Simulated assay, not measured.
Amino acid sequence: MTTNLSECINVVLKGTRNLPVAAIVWATHERLQQLFMRRGRETHAQLQGGQIHSQRLLTAIDKNRENLLMLRVTHCDHRASVFSVEEMEPVDGWSQTSYRICLSERTCDCGLFQSLHYPCRHTLAACAAASIEWGHFVDPVYTMASVFKVYDREFPSILDEKM
Rank of each mutant, 00 (worst) to 15 (best):
C8H: 10
V73C: 13
T107P: 03
K162M: 06
A128I: 00
L103N: 08
L35H: 08
T97Y: 07
E42H: 05
F155S: 15
L13N: 06
A45L: 14
C76Q: 15
S131H: 15
C76G: 09
L47V: 05
G50I: 00
I158N: 02
E154N: 06
E42C: 08
N4G: 09
E161C: 10
M88I: 12
P90A: 14
F155I: 15
L13Q: 09
T16E: 04
I158F: 04
Q96Y: 02
A126C: 10
A27Y: 03
A22Y: 04
F36C: 14
E87F: 00
L112V: 10
Y151G: 03
L116Y: 10
V82C: 06
K14N: 07
V21Y: 00
E133F: 00
H29M: 13
I24S: 02
V141Y: 01
H75I: 12
G111A: 13
Q96R: 12
S81Q: 14
Q34C: 07
C110R: 03
C110H: 04
G40Q: 07
N64Q: 11
G50A: 04
A145R: 08
E105R: 13
H122G: 09
W26L: 11
M70C: 12
T2E: 13
V150W: 06
L124S: 04
R106H: 12
A130T: 05
C108N: 08
A60V: 06
S81H: 07
E87D: 13
R79T: 15
I132Q: 08
E154C: 06
D152R: 13
L58R: 09
G50V: 02
K149T: 12
L69T: 03
V82H: 02
C76R: 14
D160L: 13
T143V: 08
H117G: 01
W94Y: 10
T97P: 01
E30M: 08
K162V: 05
K63E: 09
G15F: 07
V150T: 09
F155Q: 14
V85P: 02
E7H: 06
I9A: 12
M144D: 01
S95H: 14
A23N: 00
H136C: 11
S6Y: 08
E87V: 11
Q114F: 01
L47S: 04
T74R: 11
I101S: 04
I132C: 10
H122D: 07
E105V: 07
D77R: 06
T143Q: 13
D139I: 14
S131N: 15
I132M: 11
H136T: 09
I101E: 05
L57M: 12
L124M: 07
V85Y: 02
V141M: 10
L13A: 14
H75P: 01
Q33C: 10
V141K: 06
F155W: 14
E30H: 08
A27K: 02
Q51I: 11
R106A: 09
A129S: 12
F155Y: 15
V12S: 02
D92V: 00
F113N: 02
V147H: 00
G93T: 05
V12I: 15
E89V: 15
R121D: 00
Q114Y: 05
Q33W: 03
